[in-house]
Computed example of a mutant assay.
Amino acid sequence: MATPLSIQLYTLRDQIAADRDGSLARLAEIGYRSVEAYDPTADPAGFRRTADALGISVSSTHAYALFSKDAGQVFDAVAEIGTDLAIIPGGIAHDEFTTPDGLRRTADLLNGFADRAAERGIRIGYHNHWWELEPRFEDRTALEVLAGLLDPRVFLEVDTYWAQVGGADVPALLRALGDRVLALHVKDGPGVKDEPHTAVGKGAIDVPSILAAAPDALRIVELDSCATDVFDAVAESHAYLTALEGRS
């Protein structure tokens, strides 16, 4: 059975800040049965109660908080909200992806997080933007080089939109990375920096070809920004992806 379509809650950060429980209820009404959190340390017990009441699972969470809070506290919160996948979505200087030494330091950092997470039964992942794809080392992107330096326990959450903006042939990238890719951020838009995103299926991204290249990866909808009503956009995204892949 296909895993439920998920959504990164950063998409609705303003709405969640104003009314978390009401926003989660609207997502459930749209048909989302899974979510990806962006700060597990924000009232994890309350978040879990609301998600349980709505029948929502937690596919994964971003864990930017690892750079500012005690790792044990963060991993406890990750477990409490109901997932074992914690993803680093930033916090590393862009320049670190432009040299071999920088990539080695980045791998050491992520591998260190993975060691500590493993003690709690949690896996660490890394989420890209465009700056991990623009630098090239012979015929490979910095992200591909990094993947080769990472402990096998560290997985990748490939942001397919930013990978394309960074110059990658995204289906080819996904095939090259293979089973290191556990999750995809599925988003759409004009395919350039500093422009609003659109509902999935409404922009310039060849979403079907990208998804076909990683058939077993988690699908997680995200809009970093949106020029239309965001709930309308995430509903349209859900409808498009459900029709495309038959996911619920």
Results as ranks from 00 to 15, higher is better:
residue 4 P to E: 07
residue 5 L to T: 01
residue 5 L to G: 01
residue 9 L to Q: 08
residue 10 Y to G: 01
residue 11 T to C: 09
residue 12 L to D: 15
residue 16 I to F: 06
residue 16 I to L: 14
residue 23 S to V: 12
residue 23 S to R: 09
residue 24 L to C: 11
residue 27 L to S: 11
residue 28 A to N: 04
residue 29 E to W: 10
residue 34 S to T: 03
residue 34 S to M: 02
residue 39 D to V: 05
residue 39 D to C: 06
residue 45 A to L: 08
residue 46 G to Q: 09
residue 46 G to W: 10
residue 50 T to Q: 14
residue 50 T to R: 13
residue 51 A to S: 06
residue 52 D to E: 13
residue 55 G to Y: 04
residue 57 S to A: 06
residue 57 S to V: 03
residue 60 S to H: 02
residue 60 S to R: 03
residue 64 Y to W: 10
residue 68 S to N: 13
residue 68 S to M: 14
residue 73 Q to I: 06
residue 74 V to G: 04
residue 79 A to R: 08
residue 79 A to L: 12
residue 80 E to D: 14
residue 85 L to G: 06
residue 87 I to E: 12
residue 89 P to F: 13
residue 91 G to W: 05
residue 92 I to K: 14
residue 93 A to S: 09
residue 101 D to N: 13
residue 102 G to W: 13
residue 104 R to C: 05
residue 106 T to D: 04
residue 107 A to Y: 00
residue 108 D to Q: 06
residue 109 L to Q: 15
residue 114 A to V: 00
residue 117 A to W: 12
residue 120 R to A: 10
residue 122 I to T: 00
residue 122 I to D: 01
residue 124 I to R: 03
residue 125 G to W: 08
residue 126 Y to F: 12
residue 128 N to S: 13
residue 129 H to K: 12
residue 131 W to I: 09
residue 133 L to P: 01
residue 137 F to C: 08
residue 137 F to Q: 07
residue 138 E to M: 02
residue 138 E to V: 05
residue 140 R to L: 10
residue 142 A to D: 00
residue 148 G to R: 03
residue 155 F to A: 14
residue 155 F to E: 07
residue 157 E to Q: 02
residue 160 T to Q: 07
residue 161 Y to T: 05
residue 163 A to E: 07
residue 163 A to M: 09
residue 165 V to A: 10
residue 167 G to N: 07
residue 169 D to F: 02
residue 170 V to C: 12
residue 174 L to N: 07
residue 176 A to R: 15
residue 176 A to Y: 15
residue 178 G to K: 07
residue 178 G to Y: 02
residue 178 G to W: 03
residue 181 V to C: 10
residue 187 K to Y: 07
residue 189 G to P: 07
residue 194 D to F: 11
residue 195 E to Q: 11
residue 196 P to M: 15
residue 199 A to N: 05
residue 204 A to T: 08
residue 208 P to Q: 10
residue 214 A to K: 01
residue 215 P to Y: 03
residue 219 R to K: 09
residue 220 I to A: 00
residue 230 V to L: 07
residue 232 D to C: 09
residue 237 S to G: 05
residue 238 H to L: 12
residue 239 A to V: 00
